[in-house]
Nucleic acid binder design. Sequence first.
DNA 1: CTGAAAGCGCTTACAG
DNA 2: CTGAAAGCGCTTACAG
Lengths: 340, 340
Amino acid sequence: MSLRKKKVSLKDIAQQVGVSTALVSYVLNNKREDRISKEVAKKIRSTAKKMNYRTNQIARSLKTNKTATLGLIVADISNPFFSQLARFIEDQAAAANYTVIFASSDENEQKSQNLINVFLDRQVDGLIIAPAENTKPQIRALQRSATPFVLVDRYFPDLKCSYVALDNFQAAREAVRHLIREGNRRIGLITFKTSFFHINERRNGYLSALREAGIPINKKWIREINMADPAPGIKKAVADMLALPTRPEALFFSTNMLYIQGMIYLRQQGIKVPDEIAIVSFDETEASELFDVPPTYIRQPIREMGQQATRILIENIERRHTRQVHLPGELIINTSSIRR
Amino acid sequence: MSLRKKKVSLKDIAQQVGVSTALVSYVLNNKREDRISKEVAKKIRSTAKKMNYRTNQIARSLKTNKTATLGLIVADISNPFFSQLARFIEDQAAAANYTVIFASSDENEQKSQNLINVFLDRQVDGLIIAPAENTKPQIRALQRSATPFVLVDRYFPDLKCSYVALDNFQAAREAVRHLIREGNRRIGLITFKTSFFHINERRNGYLSALREAGIPINKKWIREINMADPAPGIKKAVADMLALPTRPEALFFSTNMLYIQGMIYLRQQGIKVPDEIAIVSFDETEASELFDVPPTYIRQPIREMGQQATRILIENIERRHTRQVHLPGELIINTSSIRR
DNA sequence: CTGAAAGCGCTTACAG
DNA sequence: CTGAAAGCGCTTACAG
């Protein structure tokens, strides 16, 4: 039966040593070092250690108005993209003595607003947010608050705030250009039906690559999946395209999730990739070296994204300014898009 | 240029309405409801809303000595096992109005101690820890502190504290029994060289399954990989076993990481799984339906682990008691272990 | 029904 | 070199 010990406070040390709490505070925070007698300082330090003193950050925060805490809101922390991002943010934050609180919005507007409120109530020094769909008003409201923030992964192009995001247009265009270079002209797109700017930029990149190659756009080769319940939609989209009289020779999936579901269906149907249909996808999948057909995909610079977002946020906390960063994607070429 | 607005406090509302801060506090916290005039309460609520009041949790925490915050320390939040665990913990915590702080120990003793200190300084109400190797003294010290905690995934069998963990012995024995039922008698084990109890329980399960089937233990079929730099060790271990005059017909990998690295090597060498060698592994891998050879593996009940750990911790915060939970693993049978 | 007052554990401008 | 004192924004036992 462990008994709850009362924690020792500055006052306890002050009493023990016979000085004021002020002096103890100064010594333990290494302030006014030159103006405090060595002996007293030494005595304070040693009894603090002996009494196992640990400063109460809550009390300090109340006084200093700083919590050394960053709030991170993503769609879902268990999504590998976001958990990797979280790790880089954690490390970068820790290097500057910040701790990270996290929460998942599940792409839900209501939940997102709620999480922002909870984090503001906790007086986080700043927020890193991968904003959910339709949360522009929430972000706009944040701009009017005192709390610095930076968006990651997604942003709203008409909102003048800090963000770090992939250049999705460029990345998608690169992916489709690659398919064209490999001799494909009938190229399908499977994407989400969404108002997300970053997703629609991927479609724009696709369209741009086709246009510059003089390939006419075929609406039947573009399918937009409902985000609410994607699995059946993906299956149907792929099936429909395969059933077309002139079916695509290649397919570009605009997200990793669409790609995985699509590939599972293609495999079930016994369609040979890349021989019958070439594939390019988005984002890395764990252990894809072990895939039947290792994928060609756009790799996002997650490390840079996390590090820069954190660095910019911490700069923001010290002095306000906005910074907008577009990071390039990298096309990783693999079996799924190369016919021999 | 957004200007930092001063946040509105209870005092501001009190002044505005012309009552004491005490009364405002009571109304906003729905206390003494019966003993406060309806009109005043209404007035307070409406001006609080009008002034956009949000309670400062830091100030409240200082007074109440509760932060409604749980600290989560895992080896690496970007590891899918831990990020999924984190998600279930987050949801369970949120349901009880707790927020989660997280950090990664990188299996590093020093870092682990540091994180525990940081979280205690922040006055977390409780801790959920997947303890790193050799951190038993740290956990023992925690027991003597005032802060409740529960271990997850790993634990120290001689420490009487709360934990939620897989029954690793049973799970591993099940895996190896399956290989034996499939007709394998020469079964190798690739595991880590470690003092981790949970990992060594997996070895014990392996040994037990062999013993009960009357299969003699062959030390050459058991390889322990150095955790510090596993990749080359795994490669060599697999290569060595394959080169043996009587080589194993089946291989049990005691962790997912060992399995992935091992499989990559087997694939490079053109070894056919399961025909030349059957494989069973630990933990789910993302999108393993797309693997050349979908794996047979032990699935851990991550959801239950996260939920129970959180529930037990929150119970602990309210009234002390220890609870120790062993969860069963489930064998998911797939191509990698079934020869036709 | 309502309020004055103390206090949580710190930090820091000010005075000596 | 050192300390008394105010105050951060809340909560709550107590008094009326």
